[in-house]
Amino acid sequence: MYEKNVGNSTNILSIAQIAVMSAIICVATFTIKIPTYTGYVHIGDSMVLLSVVLLGRKKSIVASAIGMGLTDILSGYIAWAPFTIIIKAIMAYIAGKIIYRKNINENRIRVKLIGFILAGIWMVIGYYFAGIIISKFILFENVTLNQAFLISLKEIPSNMVQAIVGIAIAIPVSELLKKSKLIKA
């Protein structure tokens, strides 16, 4: 899955890989959805993290942004979509940047775990600040900025659970795929 762009066939393959992974991310997010105060908790983050392992950094950024952005749009959370696209793209970037560092002599599982944890921390922080903006300017009338900061705090525990579940699924699945020789990382 780690081909260099040699010609049109590789570009078409890359587009197909991104499209399939975007669809998998979207479907995984729709599979289990637990409503929360301002959105929902899902297992789609496991596929965002897995996309980094399967597709590499660049393709996973695009697939994660498309898959999760599409999910918000189809779920009726259109106001969240721009934030989700940015947050999930950066989430994939962070995980990929750590996992695919040059000259890694460490245990690959530990490197994935570190990358996934830092990506999860970013996701929690990103959605906290997105929640502030959404609360202040879209969800509620006459909310002060201080109130928006407090309202957004309510989503931190569910986003933490979402990140932990995503990591707990992505690590063993990526290791199983590695043992099957389908992936390199």
Rank of each mutant, 00 (worst) to 15 (best):
I114M: 08
P35D: 13
I125N: 03
K59F: 10
S180F: 08
G69W: 03
E155N: 06
V53A: 09
T84K: 10
I12A: 12
V124C: 07
L139Q: 10
G131D: 13
G96V: 04
L54E: 01
I18N: 03
G96D: 02
T84R: 07
A119M: 02
E3R: 10
P172S: 07
K58Q: 12
K178Y: 12
T29Q: 07
V41K: 02
S152G: 07
I94L: 02
S60D: 01
G120M: 04
L177Q: 07
I25E: 08
L50Y: 07
I85G: 00
K97P: 01
Y127K: 11
S64R: 06
V111Y: 01
N142Q: 10
G7Y: 02
N146P: 01
S180M: 13
S46H: 03
Y128Q: 04
I109V: 15
A170F: 04
V124A: 08
Q147T: 11
H42T: 14
V20Y: 10
G44V: 13
S135W: 02
A81R: 10
I99H: 00
S174P: 05
N103D: 14
T10V: 13
D45K: 08
P35Q: 09
K154I: 14
T71F: 10
V124N: 05
S60V: 03
R108D: 04
A63N: 05
M1S: 14
I34G: 00
Y128H: 06
F30M: 14
T31L: 15
W122D: 04
D72T: 08
P172T: 14
F83I: 12
T84P: 06
V161C: 11
L50G: 05
N159I: 12
G56I: 05
E175W: 05
V27L: 14
G126H: 04
A89V: 02
I133M: 14
I183H: 01
I132V: 15
N142T: 09
A16P: 01
I98M: 06
I117S: 04
V41Q: 12
F116Y: 04
I12D: 05
M160D: 00
V161M: 15
T84V: 07
I24L: 15
F116E: 01
S180Y: 08
I34F: 08
L50K: 03
L54F: 06
I151G: 04
K33E: 11
L70F: 05
I34T: 08
G120P: 02
I104C: 11
L74Q: 03
N146E: 11
Q162Y: 09
L182A: 15
Y2M: 10
K33A: 13
K58A: 08
A81Y: 07
I86W: 00
R108G: 01
P35A: 08
